[in-house]
Design a protein around this nucleic acid. Structure first.
Lengths: 237, 237
DNA sequence: AATTCCCTCCCCAGAAATAGGGAGGGAGGT
DNA sequence: ACCTCCCTCCCTATTTCTGGGGAGGGAATT
């Protein structure tokens, strides 16, 4: 393991606040001598959890324009597991090119490399390196540092999740086997009578499981309960 | 990056079948000189995608007993982001101790270390090292190799997902912004009237979006559509 | 031995979702 | 310019789900 990564991981383990994460990111950016380094969790509910080196005015502009909804980086990483070079993404959409242009105006480099990371409760985050470079320079940079970046992304996310308190195991929120079965079948698209038939129980009984699961999950309705269970990793198709 | 990891990654990039993954895992197991090395994707639908060094009879027993439903390794990793030492898991349940006993009888070591990995469409997989060792030996092993194991897990999963064809972007399956909004609010537990009010459209219009999304996703009902959209990463709470 | 889940079954009334249909305006891309 | 997709609104009837209630047996933990 390289020294620069060790140093970063040390600074992470000592991090106890978002500001600390921010400092770590800035230092790592300087070590790699790139334009920008960004960690941010993606939530459609609005608020994001981020540590980044972008200019605040760019971030404001990005949020104000609702760019997270059309950003090919966000959308593309959302759909894949592997880290991706920005060049490989689909920039054909008009709004995407607007975003790209605005970004470069705001001081972003033309090259980018983003690593998607997923947490246990459906959390999704991006770890991104951005730089001004030629395609050749960038290819050699990403090839050389990919392993390190993946690890950096992993540990960065680990710290961020720990601060969110999301890595704690939720007590008493586990579902019983039958409740899990019920929600799983509903998530798979069955209605109650089909699911009951599959589980070889009466539809009435199935309903009790669904209600019980809904109660445990604090869900308002079946759809909410299924969504919650999926996000919390309580069921898996 | 260490040579042993490079060798493993090379063998992975050449892997084109599950058998190749299996061979890679066996070789890496020998390099690390541990009892067992396991990659397996976890699906409640039954079939799993695995490359492992366990004895087939143990795997059969595990499946036959339905151990995946009560295995603290699976359950525990499902709930967290960080790699975890088996000792830190909750083995207090009776069935968990049965599993542990059966495992050791079947030739598993007393120590284990598992890394959870999540894919873009809700896939969940485990990368596990198992060995016979004292607590001290094991602690030093995991500390020394954790970075490598995380990377190995990452690339292993990358190959497995590529073979499943899950890293390809699904064409034409994207939802329109309003459809995304609608499903997102439903996933958050709102009913149609609440969601319509939030989006400032009529409930009738909202219904059209839901139906349209259901059609695009090939979903049988709203719950199915929401579950699908969550798993495909089309919506995010 | 007592308690605390979990599994199973049942009723009913009201609320919500579903399956069909139709219609017009607007933005983007070929 | 045309075509396609998206957004918006409206109707009706049928099916399904939700929210209350109650009850008994079994397994596991304390």
């Amino acid at each position: 393991m390289t020294r620069r990564l060790e140093t970063f991981l040390d600074s992470l383990t000592q991090a106890s606040s978002l500001d600390d994460l921010q400092s770590s990111v800035v230092r790592l950016r300087d070590v790699y001598e790139v334009e920008h380094l960004v960690y941010h969790s993606v939530k459609s509910t609005g608020q994001q959890y981020a540590a980044l080196t972008y200019d605040p005015s760019w971030v404001d502009h990005y949020v104000a324009e609702g760019f997270e909804k059309i950003d090919p980086v966000v959308q593309g990483c959302f759909q894949r597991f592997t880290p991706v070079d920005w060049k490989r993404l689909d920039w054909s959409h008009k709004s995407a090119r607007t975003l790209l242009g605005d970004g470069i105006t705001a001081g972003l480099g033309n090259q980018g490399f983003s690593i998607p990371i997923r947490g246990p409760a459906g959390q999704f985050a991006l770890f991104t390196v951005n730089h001004k470079a030629s395609d050749e320079q960038w290819a050699s940079f990403t090839t050389e540092y990919m392993h390190e970046l993946i690890l950096a992304a992993h540990y960065m996310n680990e710290r961020a999740l720990a601060m969110e308190g999301s890595d704690e195991i939720k007590a008493g929120q586990s579902l019983s086997p039958r409740e899990t079965d019920a929600l799983t079948l509903l998530a798979a698209g069955m209605n109650r009578s089909q699911a009951a038939e599959r589980l070889k129980i009466s539809e009435h009984t199935l309903r009790v499981y669904i209600e019980s699961a809904r109660f445990k999950l604090g869900a308002a309705n079946t759809t909410h309960a299924v969504a919650n269970a999926l996000l919390r990793g309580l069921i898996c198709l």
